[in-house]
């Protein structure tokens, strides 16, 4: 996103670049046989990654759509459910993810300038931040279990919707619907975080072994795109699930 000149549609960069990389080709072990040159390969990979991100957005879009429709339909119950979420753990997690996005940017920058050890360092820090997020998320889930806010036979919701001091009782069934969506959305997001951590661990190992050079670091860039995507989804989840009903 930031360091890659080849966003989809920017064909101008593409037509200029091949001449510059032409003489490297013969030596480039990363160039796959069916591409004409490294620039074409890079552009293809980058476009592919952006398309994948589009599919991911559509994937989460279905759940966001369901959440918004239900929130309008069952406002009180959703507001009451939202007030039961732990805003501090959510906020800390948001901060953790924002920092991890910064480390990803720094990793890409390090790759671009060919600093192998710095690159590995930032990748490892990113993975650690991702794991921190997951651990905190685990504590949050545990809290839900204790409060019987996990949908299913044991679900129990007696809390009321605090509407600026006015206590409004809500239908526990609809609160269960809220928590169903909460778990579906954050669970799917956590799954993407787990995949991201695995991916970045792999990238860190590859970087350690010296797979990447300042001429070839497309996997780092594309992995970074994925990480940013997962972060951005959280940046939408946090206000929609945690913050939206706090008007006191």
């Amino acid at each position: 996103m930031h360091n890659s000149p080849a966003t989809p549609g920017s064909t101008a960069a593409q037509t200029v670049a091949p001449a510059a990389t032409m003489d490297h080709e013969a030596f480039n072990p990363a160039l796959r046989h069916h591409f004409a040159d490294a620039q074409q390969q890079k552009n293809a990979a980058s476009l592919g990654m952006w398309l994948f991100i589009v599919t991911e957005i559509m994937f989460f879009g279905g759940m966001f759509c369901a959440y918004l429709i239900y929130r309008v339909a069952h406002f009180n119950a959703f507001a009451a459910g939202s007030q039961q979420l732990n805003i501090w753990l959510g906020a800390v997690n948001t901060a953790v993810l924002i920092v991890s996005s910064v480390t990803v940017v720094l990793a890409v920058k390090a790759a671009e300038s060919g600093k192998r050890k710095v690159l590995v360092g930032y990748l490892v820090v990113t993975v650690l931040l991702g794991l921190t997020f997951l651990v905190i998320k685990g504590f949050e889930y545990a809290e839900k279990f204790e409060k019987h806010h996990v949908p299913g036979p044991t679900f129990n919701f007696t809390e009321k919707f605090d509407d600026n001091g006015k206590q409004i009782p809500v239908n526990p069934k609809e609160a269960e619907l809220f928590f169903s969506l909460y778990f579906a959305m954050t669970g799917m997001h956590a799954l993407h975080m787990i995949i991201g951590c695995g991916l970045f661990t792999g990238l860190a190992i590859m970087a350690w072994k010296g797979h990447f050079t300042s001429d070839y670091f497309t996997p780092i860039e594309n992995g970074g795109l994925y990480w940013h995507l997962v972060d951005i989804i959280w940046i939408y989840l946090f206000p929609l699930l945690y913050l939206i009903s706090r008007h006191t």
Partner: peptide
């Protein structure tokens, strides 16, 4: 079934749900 879903103005949400 779900009296608190839409509360009539001027009344308190005291009715039990018949769901």
């Amino acid at each position: 079934l779900d009296p608190t879903a839409k509360i009539v103005s001027g009344f308190k949400p005291v009715m039990p749900a018949f769901q």
